[in-house]
Structures are given as C-alpha cells and as structure tokens.
Design a protein around this nucleic acid. Structure first.
Ligand SMILES: [Mn+2]
Ligand SMILES: [Mn+2]
Ligand SMILES: [Mn+2]
Ligand SMILES: [Mn+2]
Lengths: 224, 224
DNA sequence: CAATTTTGTTAGGCCAGTCTAACATTCAAG
DNA sequence: CTTGAATGTTAGACTGGCCTAACAAAATTG
C-alpha cells in the first residue's frame, strides 16, 4: 500500500510522530499531538488505534507510540513531500518562508508522486528546505540533522545557523527583520540566565542582538 | 462562505454541473454525474440534496438541477483553479496535456487562493488552458467559448481548432501523434455518414486524416 | 394508453473523523 | 505510599460520503 492511499489524517499522524524525534529525543504524547493538530486527545487516541490496526504504529493503551518500519517509510515520504513543497513555494512561486508551512501542510496530501519528482527536478534536487531542514531523498535517505539549540552553545565560538523551527510564522518574520536565516554566521556573546536573554553577534553585519528564550530554542547552530 | 470551505465532493459536483452547460445545452442528469464521478446514482442524489440544503443548487425530486448564483460563483472559481493548474503543470512542470487532468482534479481542492494568484502571475495571466478551454478571470469573467464540433461543420472551409475535450487521455495522445492541438488549422474534406468517418486536411502539413465519430465529437473548431 | 424500461430517490448500513462526557491509568507531590 | 492532578481511553453521538436494495416516478414503446 502506498502512502497516497492513506487518509490525510493518517499521513499527518505518521509525519508528526516521526518529526517528534528528529530534533529532540522526547517521544511524542497523545496530548502533544492533539495540541499540534488542533483536535481533542480523544480524537488522536482513536486515530492511533486505527493506525495500529493498519500496522503503521505499535501502541498499547497508555503506552508509547512507535512507528513500524512501514510507518517510518510513509512518514519520511510525507516529510519529503512537505519540505520539497515548501522549497518549491519559496523558490518558484515567491512565497516568504513564513508563509509556506500551512500551504505545504495541505498540498502534501494532494500531490502525486510524479509531481513531487518533477518539482524535485525543477529545483535541482535540493537537500534543505527554506528553514534548513533536510529533505529526504526519494529512497528515504536523509542527512541526519546537525546542530544544537542556540540556547545550549558556549559563548565566543564562530557558529552557523543550520535550521530555524518553522512552527511560528510570526517568529520567522521577526528573524527575517533581524537577518537571521539558515547559513547566517553568528557568535553567542553571553547567556544571561535570570534575564533569560541570549546575546548574539552577527560579525558579517557588525550587529549585536538580544534573543528571548523561545527564539534561542528555535535556532539550531553548528560550529563553523 | 468561501469555496475553499466546501468539501471536495461538493466542489466537484458544482464544477460538473456548471461544466455540463459550457459546451452543450443539455442539462446534467444524476446518472451522468454519477457516471463521470465514478459513484452510484444514489450517492449523487444524496449529494445534490445536501447542496440544495446549503443553497448552492435548486432541485426538486425528479426535477432539474440548477446552480444558484452562489453555486455558480463557486463553480466558476473551481473551473479557474482547475484550468490554471493544468496550464501550470504543462508550462512549468513539463507535463503532457494528456497527463494533467487527473492531477488537477485533486490539486484544485488543495490549493489556496494565494497559490492560484501566484500561479496566474507566474504564467502571465493565461486565458486558455492546454486543451483550449477558457480560464475564468479572478472575478469570474469568462470568454464565452467559441466553436462548434468538428462533426458538425460544412466541408471545405478553413478552420482552426479552438478546443479539444480533455475527457480521454488516450485520445489526447492520439491527437498528439497526428499533430492536432488547439490553434491547428484544418479543413473538413467530407463527412461520410454511414462509415461514420470525417476526413480532414491539414494544409500546413499537407496531410489528410480520417477521424472516427468520437474524435470528431471531441474537437471544436471555428472559421479561420 | 398501458406496460415496461429507465432513471432517480429513499431507507438503512458502514466507515473515518470529529466531538463531549465519563471513566481508567499513570505520575508527582506531599 | 497515598492521593489528587494530569493524561489517556472508551462510550456514544453526529456528519459526510459512500454503498446496496427496495421503491417511486418518468420516459419510451408496442
Ligand atoms: Mn498535512
Ligand atoms: Mn520547513
Ligand atoms: Mn476534483
Ligand atoms: Mn483542460
């Protein structure tokens, strides 16, 4: 059975379960899934049960939720669709990086495998989406994402942004104003714990910026 | 209420009811709709009843099916989406004109108004889709389609193809082989009634072709 | 014009996905 | 270790979209 034959809801569940462990190790909960999908926990609980019946996840009542191999394959395919579509919307249709997530969230369920292939070719087989997230290859291969949260790095080392969470469009617009994007180089000057402020320096623009904790949690960096 | 809030099924019903009277005057029937959507007549009958309850069509049991003004507006918006998407798939993603209908049939329900606007701009506001069908403007204006079925024209007049029905992909591939497409110029040499064959001449390629009745019914032409 | 065929509607059932409300389990704080 | 809070599940209801089977109306035709 191909991923296209799953319902939109099932596709979203799988993608979300998979994504939960991409950048952090804490496994997903029913409550978190309900929150992020904008439905009630009972709906998710029910959905998970149906997914388990189809052999896409393993789950005992009150137990953890784990993808089977098939579930994983389908999830990665959906992630590929989502990220290619985001890249396409930015590079071809001129969307802002803050505008693409919701559109891709719908389109990913509607496009055919052929269309994904064509978009991938048109874009020249990109490996990262507009937010820096890795795009899985057609066979499910995936550069393991690199980087740590900005909030967790030592000061005074040269860094490069590898990804910025696309969860909050408002924050993305704010980052655009500040000139923060994947591949931007920066240095952490200091974490001020009780003020909950991280001060960063952009050497390329000779500019210092104070970031709050939600911003510093949304940016992943790597030594450069 | 915007057209995007309607279910896919409702959007397809409206589009189909509207389309039925675009190229021919015979109003649509429940049976024909069921046939074209691949569902049972009882399903359509039920669907029409729900559409009527929403004020999108008027329909008394066993009576004719008519769009209300709101229904018409939504239908035209869906036709615009469908035809812009087909054009986009051919012009930007390199699809063949025989491959776009089914893809557009799904995508039309998933794209946002913004995406349609961007596609329209990228394409330079096209007025015809790959099959020659007129693309409604954003406010619902529409060049009334011109042309008559090839099967119905008098012989020996210079003609230009204005549209080719996109209902049958196999036939479209056949037309591609023959070099028949919108804007192709031709002349009918003769209709041979009992053989059910229409012979046409392509003056630009100095070629005569015999077409069967289904082909001659699928091509619309105008005097040129 | 009556009978038969065709067409359309209704009744009743199924499934997915959603909800609220009630209940069960697990976790955490005292 | 107990208990109250947080979390998750189940029960029951509803909707839309689909089906089959039975029925009703309309159209065709002898
Ligand atoms: Mn989605
Ligand atoms: Mn992204
Ligand atoms: Mn459709
Ligand atoms: Mn078309």
């Amino acid at each position: 059975m191909s991923v296209s034959e799953l319902s939109s809801a099932a596709q979203d569940y799988l993608k979300m379960i998979w994504s939960a462990t991409e950048w952090s190790a804490t496994p997903i909960t029913v409550g978190a899934m309900a929150e992020r999908m904008g439905v009630k926990p009972s709906t998710v609980s029910d959905g998970i049960r149906r997914l388990a019946k189809q052999g896409l996840v393993t789950h005992a009542p009150y137990g953890s939720i784990e993808l089977t191999q098939t579930g994983k394959d389908h999830a990665v395919e959906m992630v590929r669709r989502h990220r290619l579509l985001e890249t396409f919307l930015v590079n071809v249709l001129g969307y802002g990086w803050d505008e693409v997530h919701d559109e891709a969230e719908i389109l990913e369920h509607a496009v055919s495998a052929m269309m994904i292939t064509r978009i991938d070719e048109l874009l020249g087989h990109p490996v990262r989406d507009p937010h820096g997230d890795p795009i899985p290859s057609p066979d499910g291969q995936l550069r393991r994402p690199q980087g740590v949260r900005l909030a967790a790095v030592d000061p005074n080392r040269p860094l490069t942004i590898t990804r910025i969470s696309d969860a909050d469009p408002d924050m993305l617009r704010y980052f655009t104003e500040l000139g923060l994007a994947p591949d931007t180089r920066l240095t952490v000057l200091a974490h001020r714990p009780y003020a909950d402020v991280t001060t960063i320096r952009l050497p390329d623009r000779d500019l210092d910026i104070d970031l709050g904790p939600s911003a510093a949690e949304s940016i992943w960096v790597i030594a450069s």
